[in-house]
Every structure is written in structure tokens, then in C-alpha cells.
Computed example of a mutant assay.
Amino acid sequence: MKIIMRTFVAVEISDKKVIDSISKFQSNIGINAKAVNLDNLHFTLQFLGEISDDKANEVKDALAKIEFSEFVVNFQGIGVFPKLKFPRVIWIGTDNEGGNKLVELAKKVENTLAPLGFTSDKPFRPHVTVFRIKNKIGDITREMKKFENAEFGSQKIINFKFKQSTLTPNGPLYSDLGEVKSKS
């Protein structure tokens, strides 16, 4: 019997100062939304969806061939998807330099996994989801404006992970299927 799992490739947020500042932001913004668990903060480099354990092993082997050098990402600014008047997700962005390095890394992942049949449905935009919004909460422009230039610290990116996501009533549980470390 094949095991089917929901998977993605991600850079985890692990810097304590960054996590603390994101936690403070989640506490201080006055909106009715579900905060993402601090242990689950990450950049999704590529979402792979439901795959078999055999395919997961192929993905793990392919990802292990990716080489990259460590780099620093500064966490700054906030935004929403799809728009302020009807937000579904609130996210924290990055500086240009770190963001561009994340885009390069996401492209390496995408190019490596394309021969296995994985393609991205939209271009990678570096962001960390910090809130998910299920209910219609209306226009949050004023609340967002207070934090538009917020700085959340920086983190050295030294690895990325192949992750499994198990959906539960209390939110997703993530587990590691593989890890690729930087070459420097």
C-alpha cells in the first residue's frame, strides 16, 4: 500500500529574535485572525502537494544535489494576500538582497524538481505567513498601516528542508523528510 503525504520545500524561521519580534507583532495587531504557530514559521520555496512515499524519496534524492551558499535575510515590512479589503493571509516580507537570494534558491528547487513533474503555479514571492484569515474581517488598511515599515530582525539561511504537512483540527503539524545544508 502506498503512503500518500502532503509535502513542501521550505526555509524555516529559526532565529529567536526574529521569532520573538513576529510573536510581538501577532500580539499587537488588532485584527480577528488565526496567528500561525511560531514553530511553523517558514518560507515555502515550493509546495508539492500530495505525493507517494516513493515520489518523496525521489524528491529527497533530487534536492540533495542542490548546492547553495549561506546568506542573510532581513525580515521587514508586512502585506496581505490577495488584498487589504479582503485579506486571507497576512505576511512579513524581506529586504531586496535576501529576498532575491530566496528567489534564486526557490528557482533551483523548482528546476531540480521539474523533471519529476513538479511545477509552481505562480512565481515565488518571498514572504512568511503570520496570520490566516478564514472569516471575512473587512478592510484592515488602518491596522496594517501602523506596521508597514516594521523590522523583525535577520536570519542567516544555512539550510532548507523537505517537509510533510499533516492537517489537524488545531492546525498543521510539520515533520522533516529531508534537509539540504549550504556549502559554506
Rank of each mutant, 00 (worst) to 15 (best):
K85H: 10
I137L: 02
K161M: 02
N135K: 15
G79V: 07
N170F: 00
F43Y: 10
K17H: 10
G30H: 14
E148M: 10
W91V: 11
I140M: 07
R88M: 06
N28L: 12
N159R: 08
I140H: 04
L173D: 00
V180S: 07
I140C: 10
F68Y: 10
I137W: 08
Q26K: 05
F47T: 06
F8T: 12
F86G: 04
P169K: 01
Q46L: 15
D121N: 15
A64Y: 12
P87S: 11
K181Y: 10
K24V: 01
S14G: 03
N32E: 14
I133T: 05
I29S: 12
N149D: 14
R125V: 14
Y174G: 04
I157S: 11
N100D: 15
K60G: 05
G49H: 03
K181D: 09
R88S: 15
E151T: 08
N28S: 15
G178W: 02
D15G: 00
P115A: 05
N159I: 00
G93R: 08
N74H: 14
V36Q: 04
L84I: 13
E70W: 00
T44W: 06
D139A: 03
V36D: 02
F47W: 03
A64G: 13
I158T: 14
D95K: 08
A35M: 05
V9R: 01
G98A: 03
V72R: 10
M1T: 04
V180R: 05
K65V: 12
S69Q: 14
L102H: 11
I92Y: 07
D176I: 12
T44H: 08
T44F: 10
S175W: 10
R132G: 06
D20F: 00
L113E: 04
F81D: 12
D61E: 15
A35S: 08
K156W: 01
L84N: 09
T141R: 12
V72K: 11
K136N: 12
K161C: 09
M144Q: 02
N57K: 14
M1Q: 09
Y174S: 01
G153Q: 06
K83G: 02
E12S: 12
T44S: 12
E97I: 15
I137F: 11
V9P: 00
F25K: 01
V36S: 08
K65L: 13
I158N: 08
V89I: 13
R142N: 06
L48Q: 08
K145L: 09
R132D: 05
A114F: 14
A56W: 05
A62H: 13
I78H: 01
L113N: 02
A114D: 06
L38F: 10
D54N: 13
E151K: 13
E50T: 04
E179S: 10
V130F: 02
G153D: 06
K101D: 14
L173Y: 00
N74R: 15
N32W: 02
D176Q: 07
K65A: 13
I133D: 06
D176H: 03
N111I: 09
A35H: 04
E12Q: 09
T168M: 00
